[in-house]
Design a protein around this nucleic acid. Structure first.
Lengths: 112, 112
DNA sequence: ATCATATGTGCGAAACCTTGCAAATAGATA
DNA sequence: TATCTATTTGCAAGGTTTCGCACATATGAT
């Protein structure tokens, strides 16, 4: 029991760590940019999200540590892409749950 | 375009806010306790997670603000339950993605 | 080797999160 | 009303996150 509880605790911690990485609007924006097998360099990502390159690099670095994105070097640029496309499934499931919740609350946003 | 971008930004912010709420081990523990239409009082939750009642109440309050849990009063105790069971779908999807990632990394945890 | 360009890193300030503890509240029941 | 119990809230300490800025590094081309 102590063992099982400890394992469960570890799992919650890992799960929470990934959620935490997903819990920033800019990082969600990055995931959305990269969905569908896309690859992008830091500068392009920074430009589309309207943030500094350094800041984009910081977020990407965090996401790489969590194995949410992976990198590939092509010449002088580093292309980022999703390391685990299944993350998108969770991303979409949460978005769907939120959408239905908003609709139920009458605060519906079309285009969601 | 400015409008669409702004809306998207709002959506990322909402999505991120919910992710943030899900990004704490104790709160994931609470969700896990409440899955499957279960209802529980603050004291019982605090006891099972081995945290103080005040702390459990603090986490629950945060989750109620995000409409992740809802409450119902029965006599002197306040029963908490999941407000939006679809959140569990996202929760499980992420867990599954993590599981596969860990297995691919060779760091597999059985019982996950 | 030197330069130009694409990324990454270190640092400090401000904002934010988590916790325990003590005190406050809200119903229920006598 | 007085009181009991379950829950909530206020607060301060300590920790973490995010950001911009300046600087550092890496690769390719000249």
């Amino acid at each position: 029991m102590s063992d099982k509880n400890h394992l469960e605790k570890r799992i919650f911690e890992l799960h929470a760590a990934v959620c935490k990485t997903l819990s920033h609007p800019k990082r969600l924006g990055i995931i959305d940019l990269l969905r569908g097998e896309k690859e992008m360099g830091v500068s392009e990502i920074a430009e589309k999200l309207i943030i500094t390159k350094a800041n984009a690099s910081q977020h990407l670095s965090l996401m790489r540590q969590q194995n949410i994105v992976k990198t590939r070097r092509v010449g002088v640029t580093i292309l980022y892409s999703l390391a685990n496309p299944k993350i998108i499934v969770a991303y979409d499931a949460l978005k769907k749950a939120l959408k239905e919740q908003l609709e139920a609350d009458g605060k519906l946003l079309e285009k969601f």
